[in-house]
């Protein structure tokens, strides 16, 4: 699909005008790749934080504000901005798609009987998480209940790895459900590739750790249109043969990643896919007002926060600069 072809299909929706107008202002806070390269090149570590005053984090880094963990700060900024944008959207879906990963981590903690959620709440409200943490599973999301491997009665003995896989499956089913509800070619295409890439990554990591694929297949299914892909990957232990099974753009990225050194393959695939998805999401910037514009902004902000966490935490942990440059993601601008 050509860029021009995709742009031509992005209609404007005046009811999204208010939030899109606001995003036009917020977009100026995005930092380009040059900003991150310059941040990595700074000699003095003390100069890093003052340079963040032009980013989304400026309200969170006011002089005199104490913070211990930069990642938590960046996550809080992302969530609070996302929730504020969501409140002004005619539909919450374009924002919810980006809140879900942390929501499912909160749900995991609740299932493990932890009453304090590690991340700000997004899609799953506080009452649900508290109820789950106290052993009441009546209101658990349908996406979790649909899982073939899900059984409330086994919760006390469930293996943490199995719980992770079950929640991964529920998370992907939730993504499928939300993206299909939006009737947007851009969002559906993005989510299709994101889920494909996520499935490949799950199986690839399982292969590296020598986990039996059968376990993943059992806990991830059913997965709608991706069920066949899961069955195919589960039946083939050699990742070299996966690109043909996956096909399309994700298959091409997988082929490129397989050419890297063994230890770099999965990380390389994840980074290349993140860049590819950001490239797709950027199409939404061309819309004056509409859900794709919000979706594109949220994809950009997620990438921005990932880059900020990488660079700032990396610099503070004195990780080698060349490695940080290599891991930088494609941004919104």
């Amino acid at each position: 699909m050509t860029r021009e072809g995709m742009s031509a299909r992005l209609k404007n929706f005046p009811s999204w005008g208010f939030v899109s107008g606001r995003l036009s202002v917020l977009e100026e806070r995005f930092a380009g790749k040059d900003f991150f390269t310059a941040l990595i090149a700074l000699e003095n570590l003390g100069d890093v934080v003052p340079h963040l005053q032009d980013t989304f984090l400026r309200e969170y880094l006011a002089p005199g504000t104490a913070w211990e963990d930069f990642s938590s700060l960046a996550d809080r900024c992302l969530h609070e901005t996302a929730l504020s944008i969501r409140a002004e959207c005619p539909s919450s879906i374009p924002v919810d798609l980006f809140l879900l990963p942390h929501d499912y981590l909160n749900l995991k903690c609740a299932l493990l009987r932890e009453t304090v959620s590690p991340f700000p709440r997004g899609v799953f409200h506080e009452e649900l998480l508290q109820a789950v943490a106290h052993g009441e599973h009546g209101d658990l999301p349908e996406t979790l209940r649909q899982g073939e491997g899900w059984s409330v009665t086994d919760m006390a003995q469930i293996d943490p790895v199995d719980l992770d896989i079950i929640l991964d499956g529920a998370y992907m089913r939730h993504l499928i459900m939300l993206s299909s509800a939006m009737d947007s070619e851009l969002m559906a295409g993005y989510m299709h590739e994101r889920i494909q890439a996520h499935i490949v990554t799950v199986f690839w990591r399982a292969a590296k750790q020598h986990f039996p694929f059968r376990r993943f297949q059992q806990h991830l299914l059913p997965m709608g249109e991706f069920t066949a892909l899961i069955n195919d990957l589960a039946g083939q232990g050699n990742p070299e043969l996966w690109p043909a099974m996956v096909g399309g753009g994700v298959g091409d990225v997988l082929s490129e990643a397989l050419e890297k050194e063994n230890g770099e393959q999965v990380a390389g695939f994840t980074l290349k896919m993140a860049n590819r998805l950001m490239g797709r999401a950027k199409e939404g910037r061309l819309q004056t007002a509409g859900p794709e514009r919000v979706f594109s902004f949220m994809a950009g902000m997620s990438a921005e926060m990932a880059n900020l966490k990488l660079v700032v935490s990396g610099r503070l942990s004195r990780i080698e600069r060349g490695l940080l440059r290599q891991r930088l993601r494609e941004g919104y601008v």
């Binding site: 005046p14 005008g17 107008g21 606001r22 995003l23 202002v25 002004e88 007002a289």
Partner: peptide, 15 residues
């Protein structure tokens, strides 16, 4: 006017 106003109101929220 409604189309333009929606957008302008969103901009004015920030600026």
């Amino acid at each position: 006017i409604a189309i333009a106003s929606h957008q302008a109101a969103g901009v004015m929220r920030e600026k």
